[in-house]
Design a protein around this nucleic acid. Structure first.
Lengths: 219, 219, 219, 219
DNA sequence: GATGAATGAGCGTTCATTCAT
DNA sequence: AATGAATGAACGCTCATTCAT
């Protein structure tokens, strides 16, 4: 998949060179490992056997790299949503499929270079707020980045409306599901003991139950 | 209110000196303003007209200060929940009250020093994940800090069970509400245009509707 | 033993109060443990359950404390030399006894507070040069401190002259023995494998052999 | 002379750039002037008109720099010993030459950059113990550094054995001479008045006399 | 286009010391 | 006399970035 990343986030398209791809792949891996705070271009440089200054050819700074990765993630989610829902007619089926897609625990790989979706998800949840705060600083690329995320939200909201046009908060519910899908990862990691998840009960179950209850109720 | 903060987070109780209180008050304000990343003890020192080294007498590092503030917030939430629910008998009333407390936009002030709850909430949502990542490093205070948060989650989960003992995911729903209550702030700031909120429609409405639907449904 | 320490090294005589004695005892122990470089009054304060500022009542700074300890050591050596040699008539016996005293590995304790001579020796050897460099800065107390050390050197040199009045370098030989006695500790610790010491061969043997050879030779 | 320094002490070979050489030359000079304790990379940076951070590219910390300088010194001593003794046949001549080399006061310069041997010697004597304490911390480079020093000790010990195979403490005597050669500098500086040295009597005389006496004696 | 060297600025922390009690 | 609180200054080090090649 070649995600659509708005120009201006990068200086030089990382997808179009070997070094660029390495920066993405190892960048994702390193951020996941040591956290974005501790992540520096120097450390990434060491990891890819290259000088830190080379990375600056691609991204102005580490924040732009994170924005790139985030945009990438949401593009990928949007792409899969559209692709998988395309041939479903029944709104209920469409919504069910969407929720499954968002909440299930995949081990799919993006790109040729074997970046796992689950690793990306990890980074997104850990740095979700950060990406938005960054945007307040980088006003130029502000809208560009957020657009992709918003499109995902509105896509789900549309399906919700199809299922129950009378429900009053489709956008809020959409946000809750999307955000919730991220939050599951977090809960599983840190609070296994206070959730109701088990082998047979999954986040997907929880959200399907929730959405069904809410939308049937107001029907 | 004097929150219960587990010792070990601070070196010297900041509540027990003028300088300590200043550190808390101005610390909260500065973290909110420039973000935790950019926040340093040096900048805080300048703001409180004191040397950064003085702050080190109270907190080992800025991460411990954030842990303190977070513990404080969750203690405060727990305190209000218990206090306000104490005299309500009907489980439905109790749950409604709890949701209102969590989701409403207060401008209450903590402490004598005029720290606004809404500012605290802002910090918590922006750094929620971080506080837990920290804990993975500071294993000693690990459990202590998380305990308060867990107590809040389980408190709500208990009320949910009272309302509908047959519902399968009380803890998950509790997490969703608590996390959701934080998320509202965020949405309002960054996505006003994609939520369904208006003067007359509030986060409280959304969550009350959600919970009612879910719990009635499985009754 | 109450060593004679020249005033000016301390602000308040540490031997005359409980806190003072604690400072000496624990100071010696801590310097030995973590090294003089890493040693600070703050750490010592923690150890003796007292505030660092209290220590400043006794010693201007940690360098003065080291000077005090060093003076103490050399006074103690001088005291033992004089005491043990006093009743010996034969110069050869006197020299032999002196060498034994300097080179043997004692576990004698100074003061009431159980400071081991071997610990002191450890500190002296590790910081010998430093004490002299300090003196170049503190010109006032310069001579005072060095005097004690010089008296030990000259005492041995005198005995050497008694044994062999024709030997040309009594002072140098004296220095070699005194310095050598310290150096043994060091060799044993770091170079066990390149010295000739064993259960039955000791530093004392080496020095007795050396001195005998040198003084007989020129007789 | 290009000394053999075991890798791992430096991050980037200081001999291979102008800045690196400057760091060595001015580093030696500054340590000699203000002492190793007071020496910091910041001060060195000011002196070489460069930022301290640049120095960190070469050496992890000032302790590693001192290790480098020390290794350098002992390599230089070993080199001169081997070179000057190579063509001497008579063991007595070899030993005499070795003692002269070790004890004489040279003003030879190392490297192209005019680092005086005497300045180096000054640093070595002042920080001899320290270099070994460091090694206890930096276990990796431990053996590497000590090796060079040991080789010098064993080299002299071998010659001693050649002169008198029956002498019981060749290694100890070797240590005494090598350590003593350093000690002379110290004595001259601090105790001119208590040594027997004069225009016509030198440390070399003292040690030649000592060694001759000891080795003849047991023959 | 990619890299290595260099650097200014700033971070997190400790030190030595003073002041008020 | 002893202590606790406070602080300026400095330390050791890393970061983000630029420049020259």
């Amino acid at each position: 998949m070649k995600p659509e990343i708005y120009g201006g986030i990068f200086l030089k398209d990382p997808e179009r060179s070997e070094l660029g791809k390495k920066i993405l792949k190892e960048g994702v891996s390193l951020i996941d490992k040591i956290g974005f705070e501790a992540f520096t271009f120097k450390k990434l440089g060491e990891r890819i056997q290259s000088n830190e200054s080379s990375i600056y050819r691609y991204f102005e700074n580490k924040h732009k790299l994170l924005l790139y990765i985030s945009s990438w993630y949401w593009s990928w989610i949007e792409f899969r949503l559209i692709f998988e829902i395309a041939n479903l007619e029944d709104p209920n089926h469409r919504l069910t499929k969407a929720i499954i897609l968002l909440t299930e625990d995949t081990s799919l790989e993006l790109l040729d270079d074997h970046i796992k979706e689950s690793t990306l998800k990890q980074i997104i949840i850990s740095n979700f707020v950060k990406t938005f705060n960054m945007n307040e600083v980088n006003h130029e690329n502000n809208e560009d980045f957020i657009k992709t995320y918003k499109r995902v939200i509105l896509l789900i909201a549309e399906i919700i409306k199809e299922v129950n046009p009378n429900y009053s908060y489709p956008e809020n519910l959409s946000c809750s599901i999307v955000e919730g899908s991220l939050h599951q990862h977090f809960l599983k990691q840190h609070f296994k003991n206070i959730t109701n998840y088990s082998e047979s009960v999954t986040p997907t179950d929880f959200f399907l139950n929730m959405v069904k209850a809410i939308l049937n109720n107001t029907e």
